[in-house]
Simulated assay, not measured.
Amino acid sequence: MPRQRTGDTRARIQQAALELFAVQGVQQTSLRDIADRLGVTKPALYYHFASREELLNSLVEPMIADFEAYAAAQRAAAPVPPRELLGSYFDLSYRHRETIQLAIRDLSVLHELKLTDRFIGWRRTVAELLVGTEPSLSDVVRCMVALGGLSDCAVMLDHEPVSELREAAVEAAYDSLGRP
């Protein structure tokens, strides 16, 4: 039987951790739990991740990098048509739905990794691109409903066909903005 590559093992560890974190919570999941799930020794797990925190960071860092790059790219490309911006925001949220679900289910993740301020900043960037820097209260509320609903659909309705879900969510978010 061919030996697994280190990258494959690392990905298997991350997937097992994500599954256990989702069920048990981050604080209640030990590296022993993850090693047992995979049928490997704890030292084998330590070869890839020195701690649970390092493993958690490895799960979250790709999402952080993507959201940071997305916010910067959207600012640079402005103005972006609202439907296009909403569609790309849906795609980004959908791509990271497992990590976002983890943060929602276990709020300690948001606190431990200081993600709350980052999420607010990313959302603020998209909102500003949609409604400007001095929107009315009505526009702010519509934008919050649009972005919140859109990302909730991308994250929580992951059992639906993605193309249908994307179309329905983007259309509903666009309608929420109250634009003709």
Rank of each mutant, 00 (worst) to 15 (best):
E128V: 02
M63K: 03
E128H: 05
G121A: 11
A103S: 15
R95W: 01
R123F: 06
R97D: 03
L130K: 02
L113M: 12
M156R: 10
E112Q: 15
Q74W: 05
M63P: 01
D91K: 07
L85N: 12
L92F: 10
A76H: 13
A72C: 07
D158I: 05
D139E: 13
P81T: 07
P79M: 09
L130C: 08
K114M: 06
S138I: 08
S136V: 05
D139L: 01
P135Y: 03
S108Q: 15
R142L: 03
S151I: 01
G87T: 10
V80E: 09
Y94M: 03
P161S: 04
D106P: 03
A154I: 07
Q101W: 09
E164I: 08
I104Q: 10
S138G: 07
A73L: 05
E112C: 01
E68G: 05
K114D: 14
E134T: 12
V155P: 04
E112K: 15
V80Q: 10
P81N: 10
K114S: 13
C153V: 02
R95E: 09
Y70C: 00
S151P: 00
A103N: 09
L130N: 01
V109Y: 06
V140Q: 14
M63F: 04
T116H: 04
L92C: 13
V141I: 15
L150M: 06
I64H: 07
I104A: 14
L147S: 02
E164V: 12
S163L: 02
L147N: 00
G149I: 03
P81K: 12
A154L: 07
D106A: 06
F90I: 00
Q74P: 02
L113F: 10
R142D: 05
D139Y: 01
A69I: 00
A77E: 15
M156E: 10
D158Y: 13
D106R: 06
E134M: 11
S151H: 01
A71M: 02
Y94I: 01
Q101E: 11
E164T: 10
R105H: 11
P135H: 04
H111S: 06
R75W: 07
R75Y: 06
S136H: 13
Q101D: 08
V131G: 00
V126T: 08
H159T: 15
A73K: 09
L137A: 12
R83Y: 03
A65L: 10
T125R: 01
A77Q: 14
R118E: 11
D158E: 14
E112W: 15
G121R: 15
D139P: 00
L147H: 04
D117V: 09
L110W: 07
G149H: 06
G148E: 10
V126N: 02
A69F: 06
I120M: 11
H96Q: 09
M63Y: 01
A146Q: 06
Q101T: 09
D66A: 08
C153S: 13
